[in-house]
Design a protein around this nucleic acid. Structure first.
Lengths: 323, 323
DNA sequence: TTGTAGGCGTTATCAC
DNA sequence: GTGATAACGCCTACAA
């Protein structure tokens, strides 16, 4: 690694002058400017960002905490964060928390040590690690509750309500909702959306529960179809659950969408991989990541956010599992 | 952020002593040890890793370059790298190169600036950015060609051969291979595996090509089924292509696996999401990431790798798309 | 317009 | 056993 000192020597000037050239501040004569620039090129000098960080207490890095990159929801989100951060000259450090508060704390410490300029975190669980006193700009993604932190979420309640209404409007008479885990905020919101769509409408409905995992969904589906008959519409709390129920239904010879209609939630890419293709409530995942990142950068740059809650709209994508 | 100096003052000792306590080297009397430790706890002092990096020219960070985290192959890989790195006290910076050499170079510069201790890169294209002269321990994942760099790959050739032989053994008479792009090494290796399995065996075979993307695969599948009749077995270069072909086949009312058998490659998670479940050649993705990371850390710690090429075995997972 | 020097937080060498 | 102190690479008052 070539240092600023070497550049200075080679150019026959002081390090201060080189520094001025790099940072384009202070006075530098045209002549020395050219000279220094050419030496920088010649030596392929790149300022050491560690040293810079030490001085500025800033790193041009954004820390991103997600539960698990292996969960299909997050790669796109992470990608959006990276892309936008990149555009503004920030780098991203990505960490998987596994919803484990200890791991989360560990990463937060890491971030502080590394002088990250800001943090975006996505954690669907409701137990709150302490984010308030860490004195770094922060934005929450897909999380509600902590009303003091600027948040970007999609409208889970409304999306779920619309999805349920779609099923009813398509003629479903006996509807089921397979809800997600109780301690996960979006799952809760979707449940309420469903309830508010069916309550008082004179339709039969039933509620089951499954984890956001294929294996568990399949297991629950097996049980479900044995104990429930006559169900002709299911709204699942996410696409993974929907995929599990669809699979089991097909295996049992149930005709989809003729005899059973299914709607998922998320707009995961794999919804198009399966056949019939999954009708789903699509979240603007990439946009959510992009909005959150822009918001964070704004705060980093010293501007106050205009509002604390950014609710992003969901859209229904009608595909093969509804008529 | 509380600094070593503040701890020293509070404890009534010099920074040198505090440093000794933190790093557990040099002599410190039992008494001062206790004193300093308690102050560290009380002030919740964490050594600043930027300052450490500056001194040590080391960062406890590993740089990971992948083409695109949005491609289902990579999240698991990234996860493995992170998990193993974590176990050894390293952090991971993840970057998406989009197979773009410029972006790659940019990240490599970033890594050098940040004193990363080592780099793992995965790039399926064969054009080689210059990795040799960057003077940082490096390991290649899923890439062949540059024989000077320690590499971890799965046995694409052998897996493809086995997959093809499986189809033949299941009674397939008219077999097709949908190969991946020509400039991607694994796709090339799988092609050769297929060829070597069918050549001279007296079976009819045909070759088509598709991108590793669902939309393109579907388009190619539409064309394929129109121009080819009597095909009763297809080996696809990856699971995404297989998913596309399966979808179109089902749409056309072709019975799978009765009239058409399909085998994919990768062992992507979504193979279980579709119905019938995809028979596939599974790569030990997580293990590949883990092995590469351990290898890298070994090199970082100054040990020479025993060999330059680590070939990981593939396994066939027979599921619903074969009889 | 340019250079000197102190400081960012930590570690390691060398005195004491 | 412990404490100054120089050094890591860079930036910026302040001096010249």
């Amino acid at each position: 690694m070539v240092t600023i000192k070497e550049v200075a020597e080679e150019a026959g000037v002081s390090v201060a002058t080189v520094s001025r050239v790099i940072n384009q501040n202070g006075y530098v004569s045209e002549e020395t400017l050219e000279k220094v620039k050419s030496v920088i090129d010649k030596l392929n000098y790149k300022p050491n960002s560690i040293a810079r960080s030490l001085y500025h207490k800033t790193s041009n890095m954004i820390g991103l905490i997600i539960p698990d990159i292996t969960n299909p929801f997050f790669p796109e989100l992470a990608r959006a964060v990276e892309d936008v951060a990149m555009m503004y000259g920030f780098k991203v450090v990505l960490c998987n928390s596994d919803q484990n508060p200890e791991k989360e704390m560990k990463y937060l410490d890491l971030f502080k040590e590394k002088y990250v300029d800001g943090i975006i975190f996505t954690t669907q669980s409701q137990e709150s690690t302490v984010y308030s006193d860490l004195n770094v700009p922060i934005v929450a993604l897909d999380r509600i509750g902590d009303t003091t932190i600027p948040s970007v979420v999609s409208n889970n309640y409304k999306g779920a309500k619309k999805a349920t209404e779609l099923l009813l409007q398509k003629g479903v008479k006996n509807i089921a909702h397979i809800r997600g885990p109780k301690n996960i905020a979006p799952s809760e919101a979707r449940y309420h959306g469903f309830i508010d769509a069916v309550e008082g409408k004179g339709v039969n409905y039933t509620i089951s529960e499954a984890e956001f995992q294929l294996k568990d969904a399949e297991r629950k589906a097996e049980q479900f179809f044995e104990t429930h008959t006559g169900i002709d519409g299911i709204f699942c709390s996410n696409d993974t659950i929907a995929a599990g129920f669809l699979k089991v239904a097909l295996k049992k010879g149930i005709k989809v969408p003729e005899d059973l209609q299914i709607v998922g939630f998320d707009g995961s890419f794999f919804g198009e991989f399966i056949y019939p293709e999954l009708t789903t409530v699509s979240q603007p995942i990439y946009d959510m990541g992009a909005v959150a990142t822009r918001l964070l950068i704004k705060i980093i740059q010293g501007n106050q956010p205009e509002k604390l809650l950014y609710e992003m709209p969901t859209t229904i994508i009608e595909r093969g599992t509804t008529r």
